[in-house]
Design a protein around this nucleic acid. Structure first.
Lengths: 223, 223
DNA sequence: TCACCATTAAAACGTTTGTTTGAAACTGAC
DNA sequence: GTCAGTTTCAAACAAACGTTTTAATGGTGA
């Protein structure tokens, strides 16, 4: 019988981590919220770091599997033909947005993931890189096949920018309050808005890089 | 004579905060790095929170003043005519990117700012909102004048997405390593890349929001 | 030289941190 | 009912935290 104390702790930790950060969240806060004993964390997970890793792995593995499955489906349907850039972007970011929209837990996790992504903590990056490795490779390949004339580097940068936009998109009402009163209660609208923005950014004309010789004098459409 | 212990502490804190976060950075780490006594922080700033606030205010006020000055210059030149959306975006984000490109301190600060922006800590948001209030109002107005048919809400969301992209753009090599080896040593190239992306996202067709009645059945160019 | 002020220094303050301990409580199998 | 194995519990651990205190230091004007 899978102890449900374990998952109560995971849920509580997820909620508190997104609210107070990695170091700001204490084991006592977590165990109190989970109605568990303080020692339960070290018993079930071994250490605080191990708990944090478990919080991320629990949903991130599933998320990236969904992404790969989505890409598989697209590629099967395409029968070897290159995918449209829009399809690729939608499958990658759509899974994330959908996860954030479906239930409160997914929403919390996506916020947490967006926050953690830029955290330079070494133990975080080690398992993040591990979790992302295969999915990034797959999407990189799909993209290069779709747009062979767009330099890999250019795509990676845009992908990176898109991750930033996604992170802020799910960051919750806290960050938004700085800009003034905005309604963020409609996940469907958020999905549409973010997708428009991402596709627009992705298809923007390639920049002219002045630091090194540019092949074509005129900027051209990327997609 | 302005104590230079004070500014040594500010510099050290800036560097350590971006690396370890707000709670992960201790006063002992800061004072050691600044070659100052532990008590110096409480003497010069009063508390750890006050120090953090000083770290942000030192550069953020200047940054937003630059933004307002840039907008002033544009509007003077336009003589009452609406600005181009591209000009507005370039003046807002260009200042930031330029700050990150000019020296190591500016680069560190922009990374720190991008990280802190989504932090739901109350004391952080209170002075962040205060610092951003006027500049946001000015840019909101300029934008509404430039694109009167684009709903305010739509613009705010896109602005928010753009902030996310900027945050990740300056987030440094740490986050990038997840995507694989990318060269981020060229600030000029980064500027061009981000600008292309932002303008592309900004000018994307308005999304169709299905949750509520949409005025126009066909998506139209936002700019 | 003296007194005055701002700054630095070392030491200690009470809390809180993650972790460990050893006993108690519970579980299912025989 | 007993016993092994798992899980929970209260209590304590050393270490590190932000802050405070008190004394020493260094320079400036009278």
């Amino acid at each position: 019988m899978e102890s449900d104390t374990r998952s109560r702790i995971l849920d509580a930790a997820e909620n508190l981590l997104v609210q107070h950060g990695l170091d700001g969240t204490t084991l006592r806060m977590i165990t109190t919220a989970a109605h568990a004993n303080l020692a339960a964390v070290n018993y079930h997970f071994g250490s605080k770091e191990a708990l944090i890793e478990a919080v991320f792995r629990r949903r991130l593995t599933w998320l990236n599997q969904q992404r790969i499955a989505a890409l598989d489906a697209l590629e099967t349907e395409a029968r070897g033909a290159p995918l449209k850039p829009r399809q690729i972007v939608e499958s990658f970011f759509g899974v994330a947005i959908r996860m954030a929209a479906e239930n409160q837990g997914g929403r919390t996790f996506m916020r947490l993931l967006g926050r953690i992504y830029t955290e330079p903590s070494e133990f975080v990056r080690s398992f993040l890189a591990e979790e992302y490795a295969v999915v990034i490779a797959r999407y990189k390949a799909a993209f290069f096949k779709a747009l062979p004339d767009v330099p890999q580097e250019e795509f990676l940068w845009r992908f990176h920018f898109m991750m930033g936009a996604l992170s802020y998109a799910v960051s919750g009402p806290d960050a938004l309050r700085i800009l003034g009163p905005i309604d963020d209660t409609d996940p469907e609208a958020l999905y549409s808005r973010l997708m428009s923005f991402l596709i627009g950014g992705l298809r923007a004309p390639l920049p002219e890089i002045h630091s090194q010789p540019v092949k074509k004098p005129r900027a051209k459409r990327a997609a």
